[in-house]
Design a protein around this nucleic acid. Structure first.
Length: 368
DNA sequence: TGCATTTGACCCCC
DNA sequence: GGGGGTCAAATGCA
């Protein structure tokens, strides 16, 4: 077990090293690729060890304890690992269920699609004795659970790629948290009937239960603000009686959602509490936006992006649309900025991630 | 000025 | 009648 922890610490140290040398490596995609893959290999090693070992449960418990002992910083280190993992295998939409088993999904990224007709595990509002109403349109109703960012503004629901306009909020009987009502921003322009309700679970405030009602039709217009959902949705549709919401599998973000999310949701200014916070949710969205869609994204591409960024001259988020505009890379550039160069302060997010781990590594290193 | 959010009031279903 | 869902005026913001 010590060996496993030592490996984790080694991976963290590699991350720290990557951070420290990022300015000089920015123009060397090959080096970046090599280093990042090295980090990935280390963490994958740990992952496999933990998963394959006969005493997996015990090990995970120990790791859990160890992680909790170093508070949120270690947690963030694992988040970074997730990010790196997705950078390399770009396994698909950030909204899809992660490849990691649920017990390993400590990032709060796990989501569930709950069949509305068999939803017996909802919050207090529905778990109470009151019966479920079945109003008009309830047949086209999908419930999705999305993890809230563990950092930043917990009041904000996770983005799903569409732009929504909030039209109501209500206290729900028996629920600690109000339910927010959203409809598609393009409801009037494109007569899009899509709506969603967002409510945080009583028993887990870090989880949003999002109820989607009606499908988006706004992308059908020639001047559509969004691109059509992918065929994968159709596949899922055929496989389930209650189709998952289009944004679940392939969020076609609009410019508003892109820039808005970046600016308001997950990234906190350096000044706030002296740290910047990046939720895995946002980062994955960034990566998915830029490398998902089966466009053959790779870490090498990311490196190129970083290189391009270092060349300067790029403006802020361009508000690109999925597959429609050229400037796909800027969010990742921004992400890299936020991750590695967030301000002139030495207290970068990477510092936040690795600072306390560093201490542990140093301790472990001295043992050797 | 236009768009988004807030919030009290109203409507409708159970 | 109660509670969830929606409307629309007021307000805020860029």
């Amino acid at each position: 077990m010590d060996e496993t922890i030592a490996t984790v610490l080694y991976g963290c140290k590699l991350g720290k090293e990557l951070e420290a040398n990022l300015p000089s490596w920015a123009n060397q995609p090959a080096v970046l690729l090599s280093k990042t893959e090295q980090i990935l290999t280390v963490f994958n090693n740990v992952k496999e060890r933990l998963m394959s070992h006969h005493q997996q449960q015990q090990q995970q418990q120990v790791v859990q304890e160890w992680l909790s002992s170093s508070a949120a910083t270690s947690h963030q280190a694992l988040e970074l690992f997730h990010v790196a993992e997705n950078m390399l295998d770009h396994r698909g939409p950030a909204f899809a269920v992660h490849g990691m088993p649920p017990e390993n999904d400590q990032m709060g990224l796990q989501q569930q699609v709950v069949d509305a007709s068999h939803d017996s595990s909802r919050g207090a509002a529905s778990s109470s004795s009151q019966r479920q109403r079945r109003r008009m349109g309830d047949t086209d109703r999908r419930i999705v659970r999305l993890a809230a960012p563990r950092m930043g503004n917990l009041e904000l629901p996770p983005e799903d790629g569409y732009t929504w306009r909030k039209y109501g909020q209500k206290e729900i009987l028996g629920s600690r948290f109000p339910r927010a009502y959203y409809r598609c921003t393009h409801q009037k322009l494109y007569l899009c009937p899509a709506k969603k309700q967002v409510q945080r679970l009583d028993d887990d405030p870090y989880v949003f239960e999002v109820t989607y009602r009606s499908q988006h039709t706004c992308y059908m217009s020639a001047t559509a603000p969004t691109v059509p959902p992918p065929s994968v949705e159709d596949i899922t549709h055929q496989a389930t009686t209650t189709p998952p919401p289009a944004p679940l599998l392939l969020p076609p973000p609009t410019s508003a959602s892109l820039s808005g999310h970046w600016l308001s949701m997950d990234i906190k200014p350096q000044g706030e509490a002296g740290t910047s916070t990046i939720t895995p949710f946002y980062i994955e969205r960034c990566l998915y936006r830029n490398f998902g869609h089966g466009t053959g994204g790779s870490l090498a591409s990311i490196c190129n992006v970083v290189t391009a960024a270092s060349g300067g001259g790029s403006a802020g988020p361009s508000g690109c649309r999925y597959g429609r505009e050229v400037d796909h890379y800027q969010p990742v550039v921004d992400m890299a900025d936020a991750m590695f160069n967030s301000g002139s302060s030495s207290n970068t997010s990477m510092d936040v991630i690795f600072s306390s781990i560093d201490d542990k590594w140093d301790t472990a290193e001295k043992k050797e």
